[in-house]
Simulated scan of single mutants.
Amino acid sequence: MIGIIDYGAGNLHSVLKAIKQLGYETKLITKASDHTDEITKLILPGVGNAKVAMDVLDRSGLSDYLKGRVSDGIPLLGICLGMQLLLEKSEEGNVDCLG
């Protein structure tokens, strides 16, 4: 199953539809407690501003969740803003990202 991180950023439903069209089961993750052991991959989509997105991820606890899952060996794909958030830092808002 593929977990798709839902933190209120733009292209979430397009990604969800595309992954389902490919035949994979998906689960939306809005908080760490949404995680199940069935999730073997994660996708972090997004459209918007890096600072705003990181503020939401930090406040919701999803930043720590993502870092923990990656440490556990679960692959994480960032799409658009989601890929930018995988970096150490963004000049867009001068914000620390997920690293």
Score class of each variant (00 low, 15 high):
Met1Gln: 11
Met1Pro: 13
Met1Ala: 13
Ile2Ala: 08
Ile2Glu: 05
Gly3Ser: 04
Gly3Val: 02
Ile4Phe: 05
Ile4Leu: 04
Asp6Pro: 05
Asp6Gln: 05
Tyr7Asp: 11
Gly8Gln: 05
Gly8Cys: 09
Ala9Asn: 07
Gly10Gln: 01
Gly10Leu: 00
Gly10Met: 00
Asn11Ala: 02
Leu12Ser: 01
His13Ile: 08
Val15Gln: 11
Val15Pro: 10
Lys17Thr: 13
Lys17Ile: 06
Lys17Gln: 14
Ala18Thr: 11
Ala18Gly: 10
Ala18Ile: 04
Ile19Thr: 14
Ile19Ser: 05
Gln21Tyr: 14
Gln21Gly: 04
Gly23Cys: 01
Tyr24Trp: 13
Tyr24Phe: 15
Glu25Asn: 07
Thr26Gln: 12
Lys27Phe: 00
Lys27Gly: 02
Leu28Trp: 07
Ile29Cys: 01
Ile29Asp: 02
Lys31Gly: 08
Asp34Gly: 10
His35Leu: 08
His35Arg: 10
Asp37Thr: 08
Asp37Leu: 13
Asp37Gly: 06
Ile39Trp: 04
Ile39Lys: 02
Thr40Gln: 14
Thr40Gly: 15
Lys41Met: 08
Lys41Phe: 12
Leu42Cys: 11
Ile43Tyr: 05
Ile43Val: 15
Ile43Met: 07
Pro45Thr: 05
Pro45Gln: 03
Pro45Tyr: 10
Pro45Trp: 05
Pro45Gly: 04
Gly46Met: 05
Gly46Thr: 06
Val47Pro: 08
Gly48Val: 06
Ala50Ile: 03
Ala50Pro: 09
Ala50Tyr: 09
Ala50His: 09
Lys51Phe: 12
Met54Tyr: 03
Met54Val: 03
Met54Leu: 06
Asp55Gly: 12
Asp55Met: 07
Asp55Thr: 14
Asp55Tyr: 01
Val56Cys: 07
Val56Gly: 08
Asp58His: 12
Asp58Ser: 13
Arg59Ala: 15
Arg59Val: 02
Gly61Glu: 11
Asp64Arg: 10
Leu66Trp: 02
Leu66Lys: 04
Gly68Met: 02
Arg69His: 04
Arg69Gln: 15
Val70Ala: 11
Val70Gln: 07
Ser71Gly: 12
Asp72Met: 14
Asp72Leu: 14
Gly73Thr: 02
Gly73Met: 03
Gly73Pro: 02
Gly73Asn: 05
Ile74Met: 12
Ile74Cys: 15
Pro75Ala: 11
Leu76Glu: 01
Leu76Asp: 01
Leu77Lys: 09
Leu77Gly: 07
Ile79Lys: 06
Ile79Cys: 10
Ile79Phe: 14
Cys80Glu: 01
Leu81Pro: 10
Gly82Gln: 01
Gly82Trp: 00
Met83Arg: 08
Met83Ala: 15
Met83Gln: 12
Gln84Val: 07
Gln84Glu: 15
Leu85Tyr: 12
Leu85Asn: 06
Leu85Phe: 13
Leu86Gly: 11
Leu86Thr: 14
Leu87Lys: 13
Glu88Tyr: 06
Glu88Asp: 15
Glu91Gln: 12
Glu92Thr: 09
Glu92Val: 06
Gly93Tyr: 03
Asn94Ala: 15
Asp96Arg: 07
Asp96Val: 07
Cys97Phe: 09
Cys97Leu: 08
Gly99Ile: 00
Gly99Val: 00
Gly99Met: 03
Gly99Trp: 03
